[in-house]
Nucleic acid binder design. Structure first.
Lengths: 337, 337
DNA sequence: CGGTAAATCGAAAACGTTTTCGATTTGTTT
DNA sequence: AAACAAATCGAAAACGTTTTCGATTTACCG
């Protein structure tokens, strides 16, 4: 590996001048500048990033912690982040928390000790306290949270309005004539589940439909199988239900599959609306009406904000935290009338 | 940020001793060892990884280049790599080539200049020459290729036996009684497409079925839409076809969707088998018979091999390249008789 | 107590870069 | 030719760690 020193010796000049020549300092003559650049590329010189990092105290690398990689929404987010980061010359280290609070803590420690320039995170479902997050902020490492956030933590956030989106989804069911609407809700912890539930409830009361807590089923692992299970349960408990708003597409697809198997006609006998707009939603039969969640844009936006905070920190500007709310969109397909 | 120096001053000893105490050298007394460790954790000392990298000439970081992140198979691979890497104390920088040769080249340059300890790569469809790859090998940076590989490049590889798997898939169609079997093949460049095509052809001739090149349709972007398009084309061109082996599940699902729309019964009128076993394959109707491609295991294995090569390089051992072939498995579902 | 061995410590160099600041050279003007 | 300004260069420190090797201290034994 060729170093500045070697180039300097080759040309009989000092390391300083070589460095400055390569970085375009104005106090080195055009002649030597040209000379240095030529021999540098001839020797295939590449700056030792370890040394640069040490000297400049930055690594041009950010960390990303995500609950699950094999997941349509999250992989879209990752793609958005990586693309945007690459444009700005940043690399992305990805870690997966597996929805575990303990892992999430360890991984944050890892990233901090690697001294990444910033951190992007979507919280695990299991995270209840936020000490590990406030620690990041105290260390003054820029951080922005997206999708699954902790409202109480003081940092920038990129989210969708889950409550509003859920409201619109439920309202859509009402608009197509549903009178008795069930909800398969997500676990108690992530804010999203709560907000979606609240949106559902609000839509009911705003349209003079009674809220019946026995129509709300609590999901645990949000799997395909759970969707099928609760669809079946619903047939036993409440034969009069004519619409379901389901917390996420995967579960909705499980439900559809079960209804298909049981010969229940969708949407004639029951309307179904999901959430997230996984690719899968468009290819099953009947195709699934759902709420589009802009993962790619969320990733892009999250990085952009993080980037600004990193730059501001370098300039010793005070960083003001932003909270961006991205638009969702109802995607109407065959599973609703 | 607290440094060794600060700990040393705090205790009135030398930086050397502090460093050695923390690293468990035997030439420092148990008393001072304990003292140093206590104050280190009290001050929340974390070694500056930039300095460590510079000194030890390694970053405990590897690079991963993948054609596409939002993709069930590849995201499974990523998951396998990250999990395994984390176990060994390595972090993973992910880049996406978007199936572009040019991007792939740039990204390899990026990773090399970041001085990652090793590189994992699955080639873009567009990569024809391998100069950028041999460059890595000349630099003596360990590299292992997986799934989409270049046979001619001298490095370790983790793959499946595409040809054998395709053979089995085609044979399955023959076993269920198909006499006239079409193939939607992938583009001309990645070796996988070629091998799958060859397996298909071999199976036909081994079972006394004539090979008819007009039954082979060349896919371009391997999308859902292409599947639908060629399914329709097939109905126009060859009404007598009773089975299709399709290069990848996504395209197969597009075809199924088109056949469903046209009222063609699957598998009664036409048998369909895909490749990869995307999650989606199990939830569409009819569910798709396919070949399971073990993404997660491939990721794990690829990292393990890379890890060994990194270690061997450190010990100046000569590294011997391995070629691992993982088992695939026929997953029989409703789309074949 | 003298002598040797073992235990314990620290000075210093090295990794490769960036940047400050002073020194030297060149050019320009009287 | 003197005087000054501008252009060009390089020495040296710094970033924080690791590790070699010599120095010092302690322990031990006759």
């Amino acid at each position: 590996m060729v170093t500045l020193k070697q180039i300097a010796e080759e040309l009989g000049i000092s390391v300083t001048t070589v460095s400055k020549a390569l970085k375009g300092y104005k106090d080195v003559s055009k002649k030597t500048k040209k000379l240095v650049k030529e021999t540098a590329s001839m020797l295939n010189y590449k700056p030792n990033s370890f040394a640069v990092n040490l000297r400049t105290k930055e690594s041009k690398t950010i960390g990303l912690i995500i609950p699950e990689i094999v997941h349509h929404f999250f992989s879209s987010v990752i793609k958005g982040i990586i693309e945007q980061a690459e444009k700005k010359g940043y690399l992305v280290i990805i870690l997966q928390s597996n929805e575990s609070y303990e892992l999430e803590k360890k991984q944050i420690d890892l990233l901090l000790s690697k001294r990444v320039d910033g951190i992007l995170i979507s919280l695990a479902n299991g995270t209840g306290d936020y000490k590990h997050l406030t620690e990041i902020i105290e260390q003054e490492t820029p951080i922005v949270m997206f999708d699954k956030i902790a409202k109480v933590v003081q940092c920038s956030k990129v989210i969708i309005d889950d409550r509003k989106a859920a409201y619109q989804a439920t309202k859509h069911l009402i608009d197509v004539g549903c009178k008795r609407i069930a909800h398969f809700r997500g676990p108690l912890l992530p804010q999203n589940s709560i907000d979606r539930f609240l949106g559902y409830k609000q839509a009911l009361t705003d349209h003079n439909l009674p809220y019946d807590s026995s129509l709300v089923y609590l999901l645990d692992d949000m799997s395909f199988e759970e969707g099928a299970f609760f669809a079946n349960q619903l047939l036993i408990d409440h034969k009069d239900v004519d619409g379901i708003f389901i917390n996420t597409d995967l579960v909705a697809i499980g439900a559809i599959s079960e209804f298909n198997k049981k010969g229940i006609k969708i949407p004639e006998e029951i309307n179904i609306i999901g959430f997230s707009n996984w690719f899968m939603a468009s290819v099953i039969s009947p195709s699934l009406t759902t709420v589009n969640q802009p993962g790619f844009e969320m990733g892009k936006k999250a990085f952009k904000i993080l980037y600004k905070e990193i730059k501001d920190k370098k300039k010793n500007k005070t960083i003001s935290h932003k909270e961006i709310v991205l638009d969702t969109e109802l995607v109407i397909r065959e599973s609703t009338n």
